[in-house]
């Protein structure tokens, strides 16, 4: 079973972000970069499937600048076999559809039975790229999967929806997106981190995948950020006073009712 996993490098969720309001960009100089946490579930699931089958390969694919190589090396250290990074200045400033066109362009040249991605990236919170990749590759799609069972030529996915879950069957090849709960991603061990440095990581340009640069990048983007701001700062309010739990509770409920007027 050959599995492809879509990977994105994002700022660490524990990092505080600075916004350059004049240029509508996020200042990322001091940011620590990590694999998108949802992509770790996707990588882990791919590895578990390959290990259970005892055969096949796991390929991780990313679009991004040079630093993205670090995220792919981490994925290789977790156990992925090969990696592909599309690093092309022409793809910078792409919207979700632009990125998806690049990813689909890479994937269609490779043999695969399954494509797995994170349910969303925790930077742009877009939820869009994996679905667009599925459309471009004409693959069945199930999003937000928390459990899957592979059968003969098909897969059964448990999809986390509002208020419960749906069990969805799809034929292979297909694409599904990983939601938290799917598994516990492994840590890369030191020996594996060393080994990962020697695993194949192929770098490609748009020309290598035969994609017209006019279809991606800022020029073709249909969604653009026109302004960025930090959310209005929340200041600490007041500490509720009272000598006993009962007095504290009575005062809190009074404040919620009379001052905040929300009860």
């Amino acid at each position: 079973m050959n599995i492809i996993v879509l990977v994105k490098q994002v700022p660490d969720t524990e990092s505080l972000l600075e916004v350059d309001t004049a240029n509508a960009t996020v200042n990322t100089q001091n940011v620590k970069w990590i694999i998108n946490p949802y992509d770790e579930y996707a990588i882990e699931e791919a590895l578990q499937i390959k290990e259970a089958k005892g055969a096949g390969s796991v390929t991780v694919v990313a679009v991004g600048p040079d630093r993205s190589e670090q995220a792919l090396r981490t994925a290789l250290a977790m156990g992925a076999d090969t990696a592909v990074l599309v690093n092309d200045a022409a793809a910078e400033g792409s919207d979700a559809l632009g990125i998806a066109k690049v990813l689909a362009g890479v994937i269609k040249e490779m043999p695969y039975d399954l494509v797995i991605a994170g349910v969303r990236a925790v930077d742009d919170d877009g939820y869009q790229v994996p679905a667009a990749v599925a459309e471009y590759l004409e693959l069945p799609l199930v999003t937000a999967v928390i459990k899957q069972e592979l059968g003969e030529g098909k897969i059964t996915c448990h999809q986390l929806v509002e208020g419960g879950s749906l069990v969805v069957e799809a034929p292979l090849p297909m694409l599904f997106t990983a939601q938290k709960g799917l598994n516990e991603p492994r840590y890369a061990s030191l020996p594996n981190i060393m080994k990962a440095k020697k695993k194949p990581l192929e770098k490609k340009r748009l020309a290598d995948i035969g994609l017209d640069a006019a279809l991606v990048g800022t020029g073709s983007a249909k969604v653009a950020i026109s302004a960025l701001a930090l959310p209005p700062e929340r200041k600490g309010g007041k500490m509720v006073t009272g000598d006993t739990p009962e007095a504290l509770a009575a005062e809190l409920v009074r404040l919620l009712k009379e001052e905040a007027e929300v009860l």
């Binding site: 700022p11 969720t13 505080l16 972000l17 916004v19 509508a24 996020v26 925790v122 930077d123 742009d124 919170d125 249909k222 969604v223 653009a224 950020i225 026109s226 302004a227 960025l228 701001a229 930090l230 959310p231």
Partner: peptide
């Protein structure tokens, strides 16, 4: 035009959709 939160609410973007 629409507002949406990025980075899980750490940044608020105004986006233009075409």
């Amino acid at each position: 035009s629409a507002k949406r939160s990025l980075y899980g609410g750490k940044v608020i973007a105004t986006v233009t959709v075409q």
